[in-house]
Amino acid sequence: MTDLSAFIRGLPKAELHLHIEGSLEPELMFELARRNRVALPFKTVEEVRTAYAFSNLQDFLDIYYQGAQVLLTEEDFQDLAMAYFRRVAADGCRHVELFFDPQTHTDRGVPFQVAVDGLLAGMKAAEGAFGITSKLILCYLRHLDEDAAFATLKAAEPWLDRITGVGLDSSEVGHPPSKFARVFKASRERGLKLVAHAGEEGPPEYVWEALDILGVDRIDHGNRSLEDARLVERLAREGMTLTVCPLSNLKLCVVDDLKVHPLKRMLGLGLHATVNSDDPAYFGGYLGENWTASATAVGLTRDELVTLARNSFEGSFLGEAEKAQYLAAVDAYVAAN
């Protein structure tokens, strides 16, 4: 296992499904709470970790939004980003496409500019410190209405040259992708890439809607696609990237045991799966832990690990020349190891 862990750690890889607010560790939460004089409903780090015993997506979201209350200044968002990049640098990550939820912050009075400028500063600092490139994806909260999403898109306009895409996250069940058809169309017209959470807790029909109504470039999660053979065939044929999050799926009871996680089956079906951490502070594992735990649980082969690494760069929103450089780095690493 040690050899496998070392091989995974050194393997160049990208992370395509990471909610930066979900990387807020309890220690940093308390530090920011003290700095900003925010009262927390927890007395200790241990109390926070105990509260991370979720049984479903909504339980998680409730505490996720509660934790975000400590993020108030550009410095807070920059510190949050740097703390994440410091962790993921140790996992062999070379490129990240991170999600942020502006409505989580603007709805509590934090200006859009504060969040985005802080994150962009952290991303720039991380590239200098760790050599990790990154792109920023703005997510619309699906439990809010489409008008609120349009307001967020409007607020984002001064930064659209620094925002790569838009996504759709938060409570999935009862909020189908079709609810956001117009704002996704408007986002595409502004030159943004499109992604959406679909098929995590929601049915395969949500994946169809994300493809046919939203016209997404990537599917986030997509586990329940496997319930629909025709959908699987289409995803494989089109080479649609799925940003799979194994430890998140376990923590939120999308799977009962990591040994029955569909990741290996996805690869066997020709699906363009990738491994990601989702909300690592809450789900008990950053990128490397997701890779190692999955490889052990479902018996991923060395070739399958290399496929996952290549998928992560091929499914990214990097330019073709940049993709080629990262893929060459994967090939060189494999040849040397």
Rank of each mutant, 00 (worst) to 15 (best):
Phe7Asp: 02
Phe7His: 14
Ile8Gln: 07
Ile8Phe: 11
Arg9Ile: 08
Arg9Leu: 08
Pro12Asn: 14
Pro12Ile: 12
Pro12Trp: 12
Lys13Tyr: 11
Ala14Leu: 04
Glu15Leu: 07
Leu16Val: 02
Leu16Pro: 05
Leu16His: 00
Leu16Tyr: 04
His17Leu: 12
His17Tyr: 07
Leu18Asn: 03
Leu18Met: 07
His19Tyr: 09
Ile20Tyr: 01
Glu21Leu: 01
Gly22Asp: 01
Gly22His: 01
Gly22Thr: 00
Ser23Asp: 02
Leu24Ala: 08
Glu25Trp: 14
Glu25Arg: 12
Glu25Ala: 10
Pro26Val: 03
Pro26Trp: 02
Pro26Leu: 06
Leu28Trp: 13
Leu28Asn: 03
Leu28His: 06
Met29His: 02
Met29Ala: 15
Met29Ile: 08
Met29Val: 11
Met29Tyr: 09
Phe30Val: 10
Phe30Ser: 10
Ala33Trp: 06
Ala33Val: 05
Arg34Pro: 05
Arg34Ser: 13
Arg35Thr: 12
Arg35Gly: 00
Arg37Glu: 13
Ala39Gly: 09
Leu40Lys: 05
Leu40Asn: 09
Leu40Pro: 11
Leu40Glu: 02
Leu40Phe: 14
Leu40Ile: 12
Leu40Ser: 08
Phe42Ser: 06
Phe42Thr: 14
Phe42Val: 05
Phe42Tyr: 15
Lys43Thr: 07
Glu46Ser: 13
Glu46Gln: 13
Glu47Asp: 14
Val48Ser: 02
Val48Cys: 08
Arg49Glu: 08
Thr50Trp: 10
Thr50Pro: 06
Thr50Leu: 15
Ala51Ile: 08
Tyr52Leu: 12
Phe54His: 12
Ser55His: 13
Ser55Leu: 13
Asn56Ser: 09
Asn56Gly: 12
Leu57Phe: 09
Gln58Glu: 12
Asp59Ile: 07
Asp59Ala: 10
Phe60Lys: 09
Leu61Arg: 02
Asp62Pro: 01
Asp62Asn: 06
Ile63Lys: 10
Tyr65Pro: 01
Tyr65Asn: 03
Tyr65Ala: 04
Gly67Arg: 12
Gly67Leu: 14
Gly67Met: 15
Gly67Ser: 14
Gln69Phe: 03
Gln69Asp: 13
Val70Lys: 04
Leu71Thr: 02
Leu71Tyr: 01
Leu71Arg: 07
Glu74Cys: 09
Glu75Asp: 15
Glu75Ala: 13
Glu75Cys: 09
Asp76Lys: 05
Phe77Leu: 07
Phe77Thr: 04
Gln78Val: 00
Gln78His: 04
Gln78Cys: 14
Asp79Gly: 09
Ala81Gln: 07
Met82Ile: 05
Met82Val: 02
Ala83Tyr: 06
Arg86Met: 09
Arg86Ala: 14
Arg86Gly: 03
Arg87Ser: 14
Arg87Tyr: 10
Val88Arg: 05
Asp91Glu: 14
Gly92Gln: 11
Gly92His: 06
Cys93Gln: 03
Cys93Ala: 13
Cys93Asn: 04
His95Ile: 03
Val96Lys: 01
Val96Gln: 05
Glu97Leu: 01
Leu98Phe: 08
Phe99Asn: 06
Phe99Ser: 02
Phe99Pro: 05
Phe99Gln: 05
Phe100Trp: 15
Phe100Arg: 00
Phe100Cys: 14
Asp101Tyr: 06
Asp101Ser: 11
Pro102Trp: 00
